[in-house]
Simulated scan of single mutants.
Amino acid sequence: MTETLPEVVAPHTLRATAAHRTDGDVTLYGVQLSWTVGDNDGADWPPPADWNDGDAPYPHYYEVWLNDGQIRQTAVLYWPAWAPGWQLARTHWVCLGAHPYPQYRVKVRARLSDGSWSAFTNEVAVAVRSGDSRPYVDPIRGPRTAAPPRGNTRHGSAGSPPSRAVRAIRDNDPAEVCERARQLNTSRTWQEVVPPAEAMKADPPWNGSYLEYRKFFRGGDIASAANPAFAGLDLVGDWPAATLPSSAGEYAFSYAFTAHHIGETWTHQWFVTRDDWDPSTPLTWEDFEPTPFMTEIHGDPGVTRHTTGALPPKVGRHVIVNIWGGHGGPIDDNGRMTGEFFVSCCDVEFTDGAAV
């Protein structure tokens, strides 16, 4: 991904603190990152001298390296033009899961205008034990709402590699497990694999600062978004799998949008199963690596392909899950949108060959 701005500037002066998010009964530990980029050093007011009403020369495409790159994440950042949107151009929270290591070393780099990488920032050591972690604080420090969806139809699912919803529902894949899934499902709306509306009204996914999604799952129901209408997607079986190279420098994922949500609350997150995942058992969150290998914050309506060079080296059968969500969705009894998120489970086979 190459920036279109002519003079993208590199980040420097990285700062990192342990910060956790509460998601239902689960505490997700993480690292809150901030850095200086251009004239943007984190002041709340006035805007940075190079802010230019949001058209600032700041990178969109970052890589976060933890522990010398043993854990890597692509972080794609977009930001609103209103004040203080510049805070979202220089901050990022990295999820480390419910059971993190005691300490991490972290550094970041950014993709520059010519497609090359900047030098890494300084490296920061962070203790992430429960006693060292503070509750996550939204850098915007105020209410955030959703941009309206575009178009008359809604939503979407991962297109490449294709999700189970795309294969079994949209494309009518003839595989035996896809046929069984169609028989179990009571909905054929492939682009709306979301939790039931009543569940989101009862316990909203959007809490005013970030998306809570883990609390909706009870084990073995990730692919269906814990929605009985898509129960067939949770079946254990020989799901058709896309081929991904085991050691690709970069890989581009695509998303089959039927509508864009591009408010500053909306995020994409991509996770991949652990090396010890057992394909003969239903998918649970414990089966996935705790840190998403790619995130996209806010989003660009013109982007349907999401490129990462941080996909962990894997071998054999795996599942990639995408969570796309933010403020929007059903209206509760008080007339407020609860938030919502869409789930895409993609079956893949990592090989030494090219992607198929």
Rank of each mutant, 00 (worst) to 15 (best):
N152I: 12
P174S: 00
L244E: 04
P139K: 13
G151W: 02
L244H: 06
T243I: 12
M200S: 09
R188E: 12
K215D: 11
W117D: 10
G115C: 13
A110H: 12
A125E: 14
L233K: 04
P139F: 06
R109K: 15
D234W: 05
P161I: 07
P245C: 09
N172Q: 10
A231V: 10
A147F: 06
T186C: 05
P174C: 01
Y255S: 00
W206Y: 03
A225L: 04
E250F: 15
I169P: 05
S116C: 08
D221V: 12
N207R: 01
S113P: 08
F253R: 06
A165N: 00
S163N: 00
N152R: 12
T121F: 14
A158I: 09
N227D: 03
N152H: 09
V124C: 02
M200C: 05
S187L: 04
S163R: 00
K215P: 08
N227G: 03
A147G: 12
R167M: 15
D114C: 02
W117E: 10
S163W: 00
S209N: 11
R111A: 14
T145P: 00
T145L: 07
A225G: 13
G159S: 06
A223S: 15
A127R: 14
P161M: 06
A252V: 12
W117S: 13
Y213H: 13
N122L: 13
T189C: 03
L235H: 10
L244T: 11
H155Y: 04
T153M: 05
D238C: 11
A181Y: 03
S209A: 14
V236W: 07
A165T: 02
F120K: 12
I140K: 00
S113E: 13
A229M: 10
R150S: 15
A146C: 04
R154L: 08
A158G: 13
N185R: 00
R150D: 14
G237W: 11
E192L: 05
A242F: 09
A158C: 10
R129N: 14
R141K: 13
P228N: 07
R111N: 14
D203H: 12
F253A: 09
A242L: 09
A119R: 09
A199S: 11
P139G: 11
A119S: 12
A181Q: 07
A168Q: 03
S113C: 10
W117C: 12
E176R: 11
S113Q: 12
W190H: 01
V166M: 12
A175Y: 04
G115R: 08
R167A: 14
S157I: 01
I140R: 01
W190G: 01
P205I: 01
V126Q: 02
